[in-house]
Design a protein around this nucleic acid. Structure first.
Lengths: 187, 187
DNA sequence: TTGTCTGTACCGACTGGACGGTATATGTAG
DNA sequence: CTACATATACCGTCCAGTCGGTACAGACAA
């Protein structure tokens, strides 16, 4: 029957998740069908559904994966920004910049998953709650911090929705502007 | 056969569009099926498809409708902000605030339509291009202006995606901060 | 060693419903 | 009468989820 060797379900799950992300990245949200994921991951449809009993479970898995990755990247970037007045926010600027440069498709992927199902974006909301708390612990300039954060989200979402009107240079200028503002927190 | 009286196709079109928007507002993007729109608008499916030959045409209609409304509101708000250093941007802050307060669902509706079909958001991109040109004509503080604009988009999109971490107060504080930034353009 | 039993991982044909779109009939205004 | 507007029935496709089965890896006994 030409079966693939049985592996640990953990490995299978992450393989399937990666395949699903790659698929969305290449062909957009509507192409995310269980059959397509199965093909992309070299599984059978049954195999995919064994690991993720419903499509929602699969999507939740993807969102958790991405949210975890984002949080990890921010944590790493924060370590490199400890001299900043608000290292977490500084880290978020860096990470957002990186995602805009390298991972536009990932950004789109995130969106794609959750349009119609706000519940599915919970993992991301939780990450953001934690970041919010971290920022609040680091600075008293709340309004300024939130304004910067909002800018980051604006850049990110516009890109993801293909409605950016900014050129690469302009976006870079915005990020620089945000970094300057962050430095101004001391005053 | 209990037919509704035949009216001008224009009237029918806008009735259908409004019904479609209302539907998304109430029940989210996935509920936007031609059948559902027909029920909501008290048309038959055939009637809807007579006015919008395909679903894409319907969605395009919705996006154009909303984009037009947005542009008109900005124009109106701009007239009330002529004393500002950059009336267009000031207007956009006002309008965004309004949409966040009253029209959260509308914001979601916009998104909902275009997830998988970036082409369909063209009308909005065009409006934004025009606004961008207007802002560039009004101020030389480009980076600052774009940062403010990005913040607005961030507020808007986060709301639309149900991933806001800001409270109403915090959002208000951000908007106030943005207005202050805009005033600072003079320096 | 060998046979049996059990649990886990995976396969793929099939089903049932949802939905976009078509074909055509019917009513209505000018 | 005819052109437009609306209604009804229907078709085909796509796709999530089901289900009966296969492959294989121990565990354990004879």
């Amino acid at each position: 029957m030409a079966m693939r060797p049985a592996r640990s379900s953990q490995d299978s799950k992450s393989e399937i998740l990666k395949a699903a992300l790659e698929l969305i990245r290449r062909s957009g949200a509507p192409s995310l069908t269980i059959d397509a994921v199965a093909v992309e991951a070299s599984f059978s449809k049954g195999g995919v559904l064994y690991n993720f009993p419903t499509k929602d479970a699969l999507i939740t898995g993807m969102v958790e994966f991405l949210a975890g990755q984002f949080e990890a990247e921010v944590a790493a970037a924060r370590a490199r920004n400890l001299s900043s007045h608000c290292p977490t926010l500084a880290a978020m600027i860096d990470v957002t910049e990186g995602w805009l440069m390298e991972n536009r498709d990932i950004a789109r992927a995130i969106l794609a998953t959750k349009v119609d199902r706000p519940e599915l974006s919970e993992p991301f909301r939780l990450v953001k709650e934690r970041l919010k708390a971290a920022i609040e612990a680091e600075t008293d300039y709340r309004a300024r911090a939130w304004a910067i954060w909002a800018s980051l989200e604006g850049l990110h979402f516009s890109e993801a929705h293909c409605v950016t009107i900014f050129t690469d240079d302009e976006r870079a200028a915005v990020l620089e502007e945000l970094r300057m503002r962050l430095k101004d927190f001391r005053n």
